[in-house]
Write a protein that binds this DNA or RNA. Structure first.
Lengths: 334, 334
DNA sequence: TTAATCAACTAAACCGGTTTAGTAAATTTA
DNA sequence: TAAATTTACTAAACCGGTTTAGTTGATTAA
């Protein structure tokens, strides 16, 4: 494609490669005005475009970072990526996206691929199954910033929503509406702080309002097998007046179940979801949710990463981004 | 980061750089078993990882392509990108995403950035305002594949939904439900074939069923100023029994208007949209839509691009991907 | 007047690989 | 038995830049 290179410019201007390079990097220390002008003219005449790859080879930098997400297609992930990308582009970096589809092995392969590609750093929403492996890369000197998922016991750079406060606020909102039997639906904690924190926010709100914590109202859902106990059974057996779902897919599946069983939201049961629901305004019942700020998370994550890259430090930072409660129509006042 | 290089491996194995390189590239032509074994051992011992950048420098290839979209966050774009990325990764390429936010200038800058980065090719949903410029890059030898938007008169590689057939089928579906006054809501054609084709599909369906084409029922919408005529006015003045919107934002805005004006879909007026609507199943009225296959479009676009890169040809190909009608509840039988 | 300094460059090494053109020893052919 | 060929490598050029260590002629200080 672009064939004219530095040596061509140098020859055209009648100077050496070194001088041409100095000029292009703005170091005019001891360079006569005429020489500068000749090189400028040569660049213009030959339509020269420096090759950033050759440049970075020498610098042993790629000006590229990696972003490892579950699926770029998701509402949350795509916005994080957009934030990362906007910040990176502004700082002269490019971002390479790797999708893991929730598979820890694909995740491991992605990190290795990025390592081999010599990216300057990585932003990752890790599954939590590769903690050891990731530590290894950090030791090898690859700066890594996490987001979305915080695993227990790992000191790391991470940007997170303030899950605990968000869950607390949401639960308190339901309590203030008169709810006492609030069913908390979560994925298995599995040492993931990001899940435990929400639970704690929930528990603390109950405690603050002297509502006993009923273990029957803490229900599990997982990606493969769905609800451990069917929502209809939960309602029959434990009579919750509200569901508080901790993840968009849980909200979606719960809503689907309730619709199928002809259980009306919010008349029969209230529903509050974690994570924004796209197109909520057009829903039969617009869902009240805890809204995260994925775009901001992306910005902050890349800010932190590029900072670490620049300073070659790796002191663990944890940054919390506040959430907000988006009140719509799925929670009834009792 | 990774510091061990080829020369280290070579020294460790007691061979020259060249021999080590030959080994790593699987050319064992005249290499003794013992030498092979020694290099293999050195690689393993030193944990050597080849530097793809240095490799590609010599090859004058980057094994990277660019993808220029409006906004990675969108339902359609994110899926196209996912398709592109899956195909590219499988073929050893990486994709760099550039967002234009519908701004032709940002688009131009993105292409130039990708050109300077020496990407091996570009996949783009162009605004249509940079046709000249893009031709320039093609002439410079940069392979380009378009998708989503086809501009009038430009011979180019392009992957598209079969817009005409899709619009024909959708219109005929409405006609078969008894609709005769179908309001076609579109962006200004502006020489964009992707829009004109839909209009032709619409017109041909009407014609086939002997329904006169009423210009009053062809309405404009644009991103900045919204509807040229407010939907309520359209209904009052021209009494359509159905709307057929040509773009997701139009569908969304129309629905919003109708809701605000308390006009019921489909009781007062039917609605059929182009483009899938996320979460449609939970809508007050699930919207019937023409569903495109963005993931397939991404796959096909990258297939075509990588093919052109490999063969260094650039014969214009146009590939149509069929759409399907996703029938839900927003169209009433009259 | 001569050594030291400075302005304005350039040669060559380097980044980390690939590839082409050789080379020396062993083997085959004439 | 000498020439031609084959085997198993290596030296050096190259990809397209950056950077370090010089070099040369002019100017300034001692």
């Amino acid at each position: 494609m672009a064939k004219v290179k530095l040596i061509d410019v140098a020859r055209f201007a009648g100077v050496s490669k070194s001088t041409a390079s100095q000029f292009l990097n703005g170091r005019f220390d001891y360079m006569s005005k005429e020489t500068q002008e000749r090189i400028r003219a040569a660049v213009a005449e030959l339509d020269y475009v420096p090759n950033p790859i050759a440049r970075n080879l020498k610098a042993t930098k790629t000006k590229t970072i990696g972003v490892v997400v579950r699926d770029i297609t998701g509402f949350y992930s795509s916005r994080v990526i957009r934030g990362v990308d906007d910040y990176c582009k502004a700082k002269g970096y490019n971002a390479l996206i790797y999708n893991t589809d929730f598979d820890p092995e694909t995740e491991a392969k992605s990190i290795e691929a990025l390592y081999q590609l010599r990216v300057d750093g990585v932003i990752i929403a890790s599954s939590g199954n590769n903690t050891q492996l990731i530590s290894g890369y950090i030791e090898k000197g690859m700066p890594i910033v996490h987001f979305q998922i915080e695993n227990d016991g790992s000191e790391q750079n991470i940007i997170l929503s303030d899950y605990k406060k968000a869950a607390f606020d949401a639960t308190e909102y339901l309590i203030n509406l008169g709810h006492k039997r609030i069913c908390f639906v979560t994925q298995d904690f599995n040492n993931v702080n990001s899940r435990i924190d929400r639970y704690q926010g929930y528990a603390e709100a109950l405690s603050k309002h002297d509502i006993p914590l009923d273990d029957n109202l803490v229900q599990r859902w997982d990606r493969e097998s769905g609800f451990q106990t069917a929502p209809i059974e939960i309602i029959k057996s434990y009579a919750p007046t509200a569901f508080f779902t901790q993840h968009l897919p849980i909200t979606v599946e719960l809503l689907r179940s309730l619709n199928r069983a002809n259980i009306s939201v919010p008349d029969d049961v209230s529903l509050l979801g974690f994570d924004e629901v796209p197109m909520a305004e057009f829903f039969k019942v617009p869902i009240t949710v805890v809204k995260q700020e994925p775009y901001s998370i992306g910005i902050e994550a890349s800010k932190l990463l590029l900072n670490n890259i620049a300073k070659e430090t790796n002191i663990s930072h944890k940054i919390l981004i506040p959430c907000s409660l988006e009140i719509r129509e799925s929670c009834k006042k009792l």
